[in-house]
Design a binder for these strands. Structure first.
Lengths: 337, 337
DNA sequence: ACTTGGCACTCAGGGTGGGGGAGTGCCAGG
DNA sequence: CCTGGCACTCCCCCACCCTGAGTGCCAAGT
């Protein structure tokens, strides 16, 4: 269907268009790449590529521009992931190494990704449900009120205040704390709900109403409120790629946590680098953007996703390289802590 | 210097320009507002206003546009703060009431402000140093490592992991926790540093090295790292006001926590609504934007600031009204929790 | 069967050149 | 001090042309 030269032509078109942002014509193609054929030949190839839907011309007698389909083919078969040089790797490492805190890791990661790719960076907080309980803490705030703090092995801390049905004493709190930690320590968060169901039996009858309140908030925190937050950075980079009027829509989409979650979710759970191009994104308003994402986590398991978002006219190999490299190091940092 | 009518003319110019985004001429002024004089008279007034630097014409034979100085006069003497209707107040209240968490309060506030004003909203987290310790918690993470959690009376939770010089046992942790809470509970964070200095005497000698490590991290958290975070929302609203090329600079400034902090800091510590217009902002890149900010907090004390940022061509009375109303309700929520 | 040079054709973009119109400054008279 | 009148100034819009890059097609060459 498409012989080698036609593929080479497509690759050249994508590369040129990405770097110049102008429709690329047959003549400039043969000049810049050393395809040793004449422009006329290229024109014939282009006609075929256009017929197949890989490229289009914005108007008659203009050069060609890749379609989403064209980029897709490019990403799948014509380009690899651009590996990072040792120097770059070291830079990433030192940039992330200074972080002292999960929040800080995430913030640094966003900045780093945005800077490396000159695109918008998107980082999802490590998922709560896939990690395990490291500690549960209960702190009295008043006689009918406690603060529940949950610490996970990925360093995340969740807090909720709990309004109690009745007054609670220090002893009861100590008991509750002991029971919770004894039963939950080290458990996967996904399993916590079922474990908690059995807990009321373990506390003294008088305290059960209060305990029940605490337990239900705890379960809520884990299950019902799986608000895995997404942090965005480098939005200023959007102004470089001229979306003209679409910029507004893109910015709006980026402010919606829900939209971002869906966007990251669409790429599934795979650890590998995934690319979604233009109209492949279900989210309206991001139809002219592409996302390069990957899973990351401590060790093997995928705890969350991160990636970059930019115009479909994007340097995919570099973006994929950056995303992969950063994910790798973030995983490393999480595993260490 | 400026008689009443000239001031009225300036007010009218500002109002018209804000609502139409087009230079306003003498004729349309007399039409839209009922100044019962002729256009020629207005022209004379405008000439004076221009000479004094309150308005300019973009080019000969165009209408007039307010200068930063003009807006300043408008804000200081010609307009009040637009009060909110009871219905609007109720809407604010219910929107904020659902929050369950300090993070959530801040996030909702940002969204609310952005939506009410159709500008970029900026909310600073309640300052650590001005609030008081509610509880300190220490959680073992390993034999040479603990997690230090600090809970303030504004509901903020700070966490840091501490690497210890030597192994630590459960007893030691319990002791440390007791000492810390006994001495720090209820203290203003600003005072904590001095109190902590005396603490080592209170722990058993064998544990002093570990205790010292914990204490120093604690003090660091409070003092050295006064990273009062700022949350931004509604950036999409910037696309409505056409900054043409300046948009990039504005977006960049908004991503720099440091810049935002400085910006909010410039308005001082006053609780009242403050306006900084265009070139009054020291931050480069925000020379063509205005900020409307106010302090907020639980009760009287100002814990942090919040506000909106937009083009100098902004509806100041409404923005000021929104900022004031929102700050009031946020303060209320913080006081309750 | 593919490649190539030639050729006519098509348009987007940029520069030019008037009007039209909104707005101004000034002046003389109320 | 206000007002109507008047001449003047430019911005903006539109219509026009023209150039140049790029194309599709065809006939000839390999």
């Amino acid at each position: 269907m498409l012989d080698d030269r036609k593929l080479a032509v497509l690759r050249a078109i994508v590369e040129d268009y990405v770097s110049t942002n102008e429709p690329v014509g047959s003549k400039s193609l043969v000049d810049r790449h050393n395809l040793d054929v004449s422009p006329a030949t290229i024109r014939n190839d282009m006609a075929v590529l256009e017929e197949q839907g890989y490229i289009v011309q914005p108007h008659t007698s203009a050069g060609r521009v890749p379609t989403d389909l064209g980029y897709r083919l490019f990403v799948d078969r014509l380009s690899g992931v651009k590996p990072f040089s040792p120097a770059e790797r070291r830079a990433i490492e030192t940039f992330l190494a200074g972080a002292y805190d999960l929040d800080d890791v995430v913030m640094r990661t966003v900045r780093l990704l945005a800077q490396l790719t000159r695109q918008v960076a998107v980082v999802q907080y490590p998922s709560l449900t896939r990690s395990a309980v490291r500690h549960v803490e209960i702190v009295p705030l008043g006689d009918r009120r406690v603060l529940l703090v949950l610490i996970t092995d990925t360093g995340r801390v969740e807090q909720r205040t709990v309004e109690l049905p009745g007054p609670i004493g220090d002893d009861a709190i100590t008991q509750l704390r002991a029971v919770l930690n004894a039963c939950l320590d080290g458990r996967k968060l996904a399993d916590v709900a079922s474990v908690v169901a059995d807990l009321p039996e373990r506390v003294s009858p008088a305290e059960r109403p209060n305990a029940a309140a605490v337990f239900s908030v705890l379960v809520e925190t884990l299950v019902e409120r799986h608000d895995e937050r997404v942090v965005v950075g480098g939005a200023a980079n959007l102004t470089a790629a001229d979306f003209s009027r679409g910029l507004h829509e893109v910015l709006e989409a980026l402010e919606e946590q829900v939209v971002l979650m869906r966007l990251l979710g669409e790429s599934g759970d795979q650890a590998a680098v995934t690319v979604r191009i233009g109209s492949e994104n279900e989210v309206h308003g991001l139809r002219s953007t592409s996302m390069v994402t990957t899973g990351y986590g401590a060790g093997e398991q995928v705890l969350a996703r991160l990636g970059v978002l930019g115009p479909t006219r994007m340097d995919y190999p570099t973006a994929m390289g950056a995303v992969r490299a950063v994910a790798r190091y973030v995983g490393q940092i999480l595993a260490e802590s």
